[in-house]
Computed example of a mutant assay.
Amino acid sequence: MNTMTQSEALSIAEMAIYPLILLALIFVLVRHGTSKQSGFIYLATFCVIRIVGAGFGIAAGLNPNNISDVIWSTVLGSIGLFSILGATLGLLKRIVDQTSLREPRSLGEKNPVVTFLTYIPIIGLLVRVIMKRSTAVSRRSRFIQVLQLPGTAGLVLCIIGAVDQTSANVSNQKQGKVLLKAGVLVFLAIYLCLVALTAKSATDFNRIPAGEKRILVVILVALPLLAVRFTWTLLAYFSSFHTFQIYGGSVIVRIWMATLEELLIVIAFTVIGLMTPKYAYKDANGDETEGFKGQDSLGEIQLQEANWSYQPREARR
């Protein structure tokens, strides 16, 4: 009887853990909806990816000669990065949207002197620029949404690269490695943008609704974990160190630098999804808005639907 390898043990552990998290996420999705903007649909997708990847890992242990099982098991790890990034971006967008609602509509609405200054040439232009802070936050929200496009492109690159690597053609295998590396670099660029956007949002901490501040805290905790996860991925794809090799590398190192970080992030986001009230918003076309109803889970704030209906700044004037 063959002895179970560390890789097989890891796959079995993932097969046991992620279905349980997926069940909790189904409850979260029922509560928050399946909109991509909520971020939680990405977490559910990540769990499915990890379950499928674990299945390939177990199959690879039972049939070591089938290289395609090994390839798909490891490559799905890179594809999973897209889901974690998507979930983090969705939660950050929620915070940014609500921060924009908390900002003053306009300095001129409160001060007639400032209103008068806006009509003076040059000085008026400077005043209007200063008064557009809330508009800048709204643009940040749209930029977060746009980041999903390159993320999708990176996902496509990884999938095509994985398919090419399972080919018997050596040329296709080399092309597959290039595409996988390109996909990882796209994910890295999105992560760096995510760090910058989160840092900017942290400066608005005092204006974030009390019930939503904990989401920002969780994101701030998740970013260093993602940094470690990306470090392992970059070393695995771009270095020649045997320890970090995708195929045959150290399973222990992968657990401490990749698997554990992913698990902690998913659990943290799932818990925050269970604790946080539903948030609906208006999209770019102004369709459907439904704010918070009732108190949040900690009883910190009472938010009425009418108060949280989003309107463009121009419309509010």
Rank of each mutant, 00 (worst) to 15 (best):
M1K: 08
M4G: 05
Q6C: 07
S11Y: 05
A13E: 08
M15F: 15
A16S: 14
Y18W: 12
F27M: 11
L29K: 03
L29T: 07
R31K: 15
T34H: 12
T34I: 15
S35P: 06
T45H: 05
T45W: 06
C47V: 11
R50Y: 02
V52C: 01
G53W: 03
A54K: 07
A60P: 10
L62V: 10
P64W: 09
N65W: 12
N65S: 10
N66Q: 13
I67P: 04
V70M: 13
S78F: 15
G80D: 01
F82M: 04
I84N: 05
L85D: 02
L92E: 03
R94K: 14
R94Y: 05
V96C: 04
V96E: 01
T99D: 00
S100P: 09
L101G: 00
L107S: 00
N111E: 04
N111Y: 07
T115F: 11
F116K: 08
G124W: 10
V127L: 08
V127Y: 00
S134D: 14
T135F: 03
V137Q: 00
V137W: 10
S141T: 10
R142K: 12
F143D: 15
I144K: 03
Q145I: 11
V146T: 11
G154H: 04
L155W: 13
L157I: 02
L157F: 06
C158Y: 00
C158H: 00
C158Q: 06
I160C: 07
I160V: 13
G161Y: 00
G161W: 01
V163Q: 09
S171T: 12
S171R: 04
K177S: 02
K181L: 05
A182L: 13
G183T: 02
V184Q: 01
Y191V: 09
Y191C: 07
Y191D: 05
L197D: 03
S201H: 10
S201Y: 11
A202M: 11
N206M: 13
R207M: 13
P209N: 07
E212C: 11
R214Q: 10
L223K: 05
A227R: 10
T233H: 02
L234P: 02
I246H: 06
G248L: 11
V251R: 10
V253P: 08
V253I: 15
W256T: 13
T259H: 08
T259P: 06
E262I: 03
F269Y: 12
V271M: 09
I272R: 09
L274K: 01
M275R: 14
A280C: 11
K282Y: 07
D283V: 04
D283K: 14
G286K: 14
E288C: 06
E288G: 04
E288P: 02
T289V: 14
G291Y: 02
K293F: 13
G294Y: 05
L298M: 15
L298G: 15
Q302W: 14
Y310N: 08
E314P: 03
